[in-house]
């Protein structure tokens, strides 16, 4: 029997071929002249990469197509960051690069040569929780927990953004220093979706940490 991966690939290739065949039969002759020149087919390419993850220097060799999220999860076994949508729409894969929050599914690992990356595993440990992790536990800021690593990384960086005076859609006066009102908190965390709907407890946990650090 086929290995499940082989099966997956052959089915996919079959589908791609199928679409191409349909497209060709449907195309009026004009289309060929208008079509942009096809990119040459290249072989998968591996690239060497060195960066710092959670305070440790790491070296990897990855296929150029590897996203930062897949490099962290599949190559470095840091499975705390989650893959929810792989399209930038859910925030489950949020990590910090140079202290700034980004979605790691929409960036390539090879774009992070020399960068410093912090994942949920680097924020705190089970024995020494980061204050945001502790607040999520205390306030019950989750149900299934799938969105939680992304929520916590996002929240930590979000508080820094408010401190740095970065405006949001909820900021009423663009020229004044933003305050973390409930409306501001919700708007600034809108990139982290929680399928379980634990939002009110998530907001409570973040508010508690914000109050303490203010």
């Amino acid at each position: 029997m086929n290995h499940p991966d082989d099966l997956e690939i052959s089915r996919r290739e079959f589908l791609v071929m199928g679409t191409a065949a349909v497209a060709v039969t449907m195309l009026p002759p004009l289309a060929e002249a208008q079509a942009p020149p096809a990119a040459p087919v290249v072989k998968p390419a591996a690239v060497k990469l060195a960066f710092n993850v959670n305070g440790k220097a790491r070296e990897l060799e990855v296929d150029t197509r590897t996203t930062l999220l897949d490099a962290l999860r599949e190559h470095l076994n840091l499975t705390g960051s989650k893959k929810g949508c792989d399209q930038g729409q859910c925030g489950a894969c949020t990590v910090l690069v140079g202290g700034r929050r980004i979605v790691s599914c929409l960036t390539l690992a090879v774009m992070h040569q020399g960068d410093s990356i912090t994942t949920i595993e680097g924020l705190g440990t089970p024995d020494h929780l980061h204050p945001m992790q502790a607040a999520f536990v205390k306030c019950d800021g989750f149900q299934c927990g799938y969105c939680t690593p992304g929520q916590i990384c996002s929240a930590v960086a979000m508080l820094q953004e408010v401190k740095a005076g970065i405006p949001s859609h909820a900021t009423s006066d663009l020229t004044a220093a933003p305050q973390l009102t409930p409306a501001e908190l919700r708007e600034r965390m809108s990139g982290n979706i929680c399928r379980c709907g634990a939002y009110s407890n998530i907001a409570e946990a973040i508010t508690e940490v914000a109050g303490r650090t203010a």
Partner: peptide, 12 residues
């Protein structure tokens, strides 16, 4: 700008 996307995406 702040009406577009999310905090994470605007950082990128």
């Amino acid at each position: 700008l702040v009406a577009g996307a999310t905090g994470q995406l605007r950082n990128m």
